[in-house]
Design a protein around this nucleic acid. Sequence first.
DNA 1: CGTCTTATTGACTCCGTTCAATCAAGGTGG
DNA 2: CCACCTTGATTGAACGGAGTCAATAAGACG
Lengths: 250, 250
Amino acid sequence: MSEPALRRPRPGPIADDGDALRFCSTCAFSQACLSQGFDKSSLNDLHVLVEHVGPFHEGEHLFREGDDFTAIAAVRAGTVKTYVLDPSGQEQVLGFFLPGEVIGLNAIHHARYPCNAVALDTVMLCRFSFPKMALLATRLPGLQAQLFRLLSQDIGKAALLAGDYSSDQRMAAFLVSLSRRYAERGFSPSRFHLTMARTDMANYLRLAPETVSRVLRRFQDEGLVQVERRELEILDAARLAALARPVLRE
Amino acid sequence: MSEPALRRPRPGPIADDGDALRFCSTCAFSQACLSQGFDKSSLNDLHVLVEHVGPFHEGEHLFREGDDFTAIAAVRAGTVKTYVLDPSGQEQVLGFFLPGEVIGLNAIHHARYPCNAVALDTVMLCRFSFPKMALLATRLPGLQAQLFRLLSQDIGKAALLAGDYSSDQRMAAFLVSLSRRYAERGFSPSRFHLTMARTDMANYLRLAPETVSRVLRRFQDEGLVQVERRELEILDAARLAALARPVLRE
DNA sequence: CGTCTTATTGACTCCGTTCAATCAAGGTGG
DNA sequence: CCACCTTGATTGAACGGAGTCAATAAGACG
């Protein structure tokens, strides 16, 4: 894998704006860097350590627990599920990553991935060599700050589900969360495809699959949502958000 | 609360080796930096942005949700509890921080503390100005790496409790975790003081206080532990660890 | 069309909660 | 020193939400 050497920062602002900015349009990371006021030469520096990989197909693993960690990745398209196997071989779903979200941050500590990551549909990634990025970050304080922020953001994100909430509250929070995250990337917040199986949702929410079915059915009976297989429409976002409130702490 | 003024950095390297290294002996952060092979002048650079604060007394808050974030802190002595209040005003315990552990990492993202922190007993802190440390980290790649590692480590730490484990497993995991963390700092792994109230343990473990009482009592009846008020002795560490295994994933 | 996987629905069970009473410890003031 | 009160911990009894077990239904795919 031959990489162009890191270029020295060019002094001064750049004339044309179009080129460098397009380098990873769906990637939250790049976008955040942009909004941080990175100049184009900095973005270019960042660009050279980016590698577009994929497609990964449904069921294909992006990495497995224990693999050497070298890179973090932003999801460009598709959905990634992370999970671990407990000592008895039981799967435990840790999270779902939608387009624009960054995966692998929890691997820095031990320099190994602490979990498995699998594609739930066709997945495209934007992979950043972490060592190179860290090196670059010593020259670009804005990049360093961005990385610190990204890492900090993920701390305690899982704590939401840790509370002892009812199945209704958990499910509502899950749907609201998906809705908002899709909205952030320009997808419809009210209609979207559930890319994960019911069993995965259940596992993630620490519920039995049967409970997921029952709750979704009740939500539909009560006019909160419309579910048809994996197609979901949110009919009463306000009431759903109200249910989710304690979980999302608002 | 009169604090001793921050001491000016002494210029140049230090003659004797004992001095700089002792600057925060209980602080995991400094220790990790040491083991990273930091040279003495780097440690000195780190030293100047450290501020020893305290004592905080039982019930006193170190910071509150929404406070401006300026510094992370390592606990030097005592125990800190972090918690949030849910919309209905109900307290939710997020974690306990023992000597050597670093607090405030989840505040970087929004530049505000996302939770409250209160002293459970007499607490001494070692406070690091985060902006200054980040700046220093651009010059010391080892420090930057250490920070990334520290942040990464905390991601998904809360996920342990998120699983749907039995009350026995949760309690066992909690005790084993305390035991190990105390051991890491040179305290006895088999005998220690429970610095938090039963209600706090229960809240943290997402159990009713009554359940905590019952489980501890049963553990004692079964010869796993000996509890006398807040004094705890682990009698059968192996069996306790076996119970905790699914939670701690080993 | 038949088979396999995934989802749904129903009936019963169980773990942990809730409600309530009791108990122990520590502080305060007489 | 003791009576009193407060706070935290413990124990018991009944309840309920979600899990489990089992059967059925609905797609997906060959």
